[in-house]
Amino acid sequence: MSVVSSTANLRTNRPSRLQSWWSGVSIVFESRIATVGLAMVAFWFIVGIVSLFWTPYPPNANEFTQNLSPNSINILGTDHLGRDILSRLMTGTQVILLKTRLPGDAGIDIPGGVALWGVFFSLLVGAVLGLNAGYRGGWWDQSIMQVLDAMIAFPSIVLYLVIIAALGQGDLVVIVAIAVTGAPGVARLVRSLTLDIKTRDYIRAAETRGESVNFILFKEILPNARGPILVDAMLRVGYAIFAIGTLGFLGIGLPPPDPDWGNMVNEARRTIFVNQWAVVWPAVAIATLVIGLNLFADGLREELTRFQK
């Protein structure tokens, strides 16, 4: 160890990257609520990953008797076309959480589900707008927030319909729809955080160093807003899944052939008096995933605020 420089010697207590990452993550387990939420979300992720490689039966093959109740062969029963519900549920997780199908006949998928990408873009757009509105103030603030307020005034379902009507159906369109409806909310949150953070002395210090506006926005302000943004993102993923479910139910969501939970509910609705199970399972799936995300976000928020004190 003769190569160690003198400065490095002085810095003995530097934690490794893994350690500091773990100390950040481990606060999740301080909260029972967050742990339960995380478990529920993790369950669906695992289900989704498993379905990429294995499902009990092919999800789109109608090889069974129609409208079976749960039994030993089809554990969750079958739907009105005689497809295995368990297989369809498992595969349904993919589009939400794990993959996005690019348009075109090549059938190329990119990793990351529609809900995640949608929220990611709404965060991206919302944060940039919110940071600029909050920090620069004046006309920037006025014009950005006026436009976003106008968007918030629209019921989100109407916005979805408008966007899909304009752009057609497809995974990317759903992502755009989620991003557009989510961004104003994110922007509002980020703006309010920015308004608070920009009064701190370290922002003055950056200004008196003559730092550029972009440096101040993204290097000085954004890192300190990430806690609340993270919590908000969790909740938004929940809303996005809900939105996808809603769109699927209306029949304008993610395009077939891959199963979609909302669409499954919609289709099973017609035979609800014959086979209730086909409606219940996808509904339960949506509910548990959204509740899981909400619990996780709640617990995380609680721990983050406690951490600050």
């Binding site: 701190r200 002395d201 370290y202 003055r204 210090a205 200004e207 008196t208 160093r209 003559g210 000085e220 890192p223 300190n224 990430r226």
Partner: peptide
Amino acid sequence: DLADRSSEIIEELQMVFQNPDSTMNPSY
């Protein structure tokens, strides 16, 4: 104001702030 000052002048003028809790960026 600051935006119009040259970097040479900016580096010669620095400030120490009042509130110890907000003088440092908590993220760095």
